[in-house]
Write a protein that binds this DNA or RNA. Sequence first.
DNA 1: CGTGTAAGGAATTCTGACACG
DNA 2: CGTGTAAGGAATTCTGACACG
Lengths: 77, 77
Amino acid sequence: MSITTKKVIQIGVVSELTGLTERQIRYYEDRKLIFPDRSKGRVRKYSFEDIQKIMDIQTKLTDGYQTVELKRMLAGT
Amino acid sequence: MSITTKKVIQIGVVSELTGLTERQIRYYEDRKLIFPDRSKGRVRKYSFEDIQKIMDIQTKLTDGYQTVELKRMLAGT
DNA sequence: CGTGTAAGGAATTCTGACACG
DNA sequence: CGTGTAAGGAATTCTGACACG
């Protein structure tokens, strides 16, 4: 596992780096678009790759896509 | 700034990744060996590079060096 | 010197829910 | 559907200090 995929960043930092609210970030997880780790069952940890994904998701949403469609795209179905 | 030097990791995660206690990590900062960022004046944020440094410091300490000497080495003096 | 710990406060994150459109 | 917010609890981090050797 490279440092790109190492899940070590907490949601506050992700929020800062992406410019999105924690609410949005958590929602994308709820929609099965991103899969952060959890430290000891609680706090979410994201990787730099996740951050990339999140920004991509946001762009696509702005373009009019729905989370369900994005999920299909990710699944390659 | 690459993701190697981006300070986004909190002390709890650094502790996990390095195997050191938060006390040790904070002490090395006190000794001016590492320089984490602070988010909004409070919480420390480290980079992957910092983690490398921390592990290196620990190795050197185990080898018998003192923090003052390590600081000199870092300064290249 | 380098590290442990108990102490109290402050900031962060979590979940489930109600709201809007 | 995607996002905002107020609510209360839980986990995390912070600082300054006393301790040991």
